[in-house]
Design a protein around this nucleic acid. Sequence first.
DNA 1: GTTGCAATCGTTATCGGTTACGTTTGCAGC
DNA 2: GCTGCAAACGTAACCGATAACGATTGCAAC
Lengths: 337, 337
Amino acid sequence: MAEGGTPVTMSDVARLAGVSTATVSRVVNRRYGVSSSTTAQVRAAIEQLGYESSLVATSLRRSRTNVLGLVIHSFQSYTAEVLKGVMDALSQSGFDLIIYSNSDLYGTYAEGWEQRHLARLSGTLTDGCIVVTPWGEVRSGSPIVVIDPARGSTVPSVTADNLAGATTVVEHLLGLGHRRIGFIAGRSSLAAAWAREEGYRRALAGAGVPVDPELIARGDFNPESVAPLARALLDREDRPTAIFAASDGMALKALEIAKELGLHVPGDLSVVGFDNIPESALAEPGLTTVDQSMYRLGYEAARMLKSLVCGDWEGPSQIVFPTRLVIRGSTATPRAL
Amino acid sequence: MAEGGTPVTMSDVARLAGVSTATVSRVVNRRYGVSSSTTAQVRAAIEQLGYESSLVATSLRRSRTNVLGLVIHSFQSYTAEVLKGVMDALSQSGFDLIIYSNSDLYGTYAEGWEQRHLARLSGTLTDGCIVVTPWGEVRSGSPIVVIDPARGSTVPSVTADNLAGATTVVEHLLGLGHRRIGFIAGRSSLAAAWAREEGYRRALAGAGVPVDPELIARGDFNPESVAPLARALLDREDRPTAIFAASDGMALKALEIAKELGLHVPGDLSVVGFDNIPESALAEPGLTTVDQSMYRLGYEAARMLKSLVCGDWEGPSQIVFPTRLVIRGSTATPRAL
DNA sequence: GTTGCAATCGTTATCGGTTACGTTTGCAGC
DNA sequence: GCTGCAAACGTAACCGATAACGATTGCAAC
């Protein structure tokens, strides 16, 4: 077994087996051209020393590593769903997965972080990468698939139909009788955030309700940023009767603030989110939201990447999946009516 | 910016800047011995080409990489909590995180998988690793911390107090009046699984209730394995009035089976789990379970590993955290009484 | 006996980056 | 002008593994 101290290398095995490292390599990789007696010797040495090839050394020399990467900035609640989808898609595929994440949460060099680490992985460690909600445009020498790309991005991507989803939400609120609907926007560089805002605008326009810029708050998907925004919205004389936040995390925070201010949800205020994270079902009242099946996004992104790496991808390079409105207790007819 | 095709290497930068790769390396690593004019030249070339150093090449040469690893077999519901804890602990620490996971879910070479990949990462890519619920004993040349280690393992580890947690569960059931309590065990190689079973036995013994081996089913933490086991338990003439499963995943499956068989929970059957995954709160009825704060396990494991890598760990090498009984709707006094 | 081919295995260049060491250059001091 | 020293920079070895290539051997066919 592998002992402490210096790790066992291929030359250790070669020395013990009395052969060259080339022969050891051939045995490890099951290549043609090694006699069965030599193979047995080498295998015995490998067993005795507990040798395992170094992923780093292998991937440096080889062009193909059979490892796919996933670059992500931080772990949110939806991340687990994405990962499950990715793993299921990669199951039995022969590809392993490396997830790279940095420790500098909301730190100074968030901008461009994904791009930098993508470059550090691709070409060597990984055959391709999935990038989750990048802060900006990303590109790479090896195949990539982006989940929730930046606006105007042309790289292969997988997204939910945020525009339709947001439209449905606002139509739902309009149908309940709401006319003053506040909106808490997400990080504006993301296409998803833009589409959700656009859906909000279009639904209002479609119903002939003018968009009041005062009712639009600019968040960045970080729940912590929401508290002052929600307070400002709800402290107004003509406060909205409903708030639509561009993510569940932000919506839950808004719901919390509403309670703090003594507002009853949904009596005094309806709240809607987007994502359908597990916590939303647990909230009191349950959060009405849009389900975008992060599992499916992860699954399809991985399937697509796998094909891109193998060079046999036939489908479109940008895929959009439908969403589903999930109505829970946080929305109702406004009490004033 | 990084163009498609072959990635930009250090020698590309060196050629463009008219210096040697050694000089580029010194600039990149902010080493002493480069004039400011040369530094500027090199930086300009780096900027122009969009160069990023290769993580692989760097880690092959260097002993220290400032990357910690986390090796995990598959993504369960609790995994996200662990990851959040790990990331929070690593926040602003200067360590990045690489999560390595294989695609061969429940595949043929599950046994020893962690050990193999630990060896492939440590010594090169990572400075140390966290291993989550390994199938067997693991060891490594570089520091490791195991979450839920194998039985009898002596490596640094972080665990919940499974023994006390399980004891509390069974005492809760006993207090409700249950006497025939079924147990669905977990993967027996894990210390956690053993401790949960031992807690079950001790609590029964403490109450003077004999342990009926017929009421103990051998699962492996995989929910899919539970269906036949639960059916067998509940089809018995003298079926138990309560079932305690060693994990929430298995408990939820048992709950599903009970419903299938027309049993009312908790009227006809009480069900308890262990872990407190998010789904447990959503189940109908809510699942009574034991909270072991996977977030905290992840957080402390990362903190410990960080210190081990830096060589300044002072605490004990095996840490046990208390658990908390969470009572929901799935447990009640048995109807027969 | 010689040639040819295939099987077997070692040698060596190589991947990209780091670093020990050696060389060159510049400058001050005598 | 020469010496001494340090700063600046290049050269080459090296990390561990792979693969092209060459060298050796065995065996069969002519």
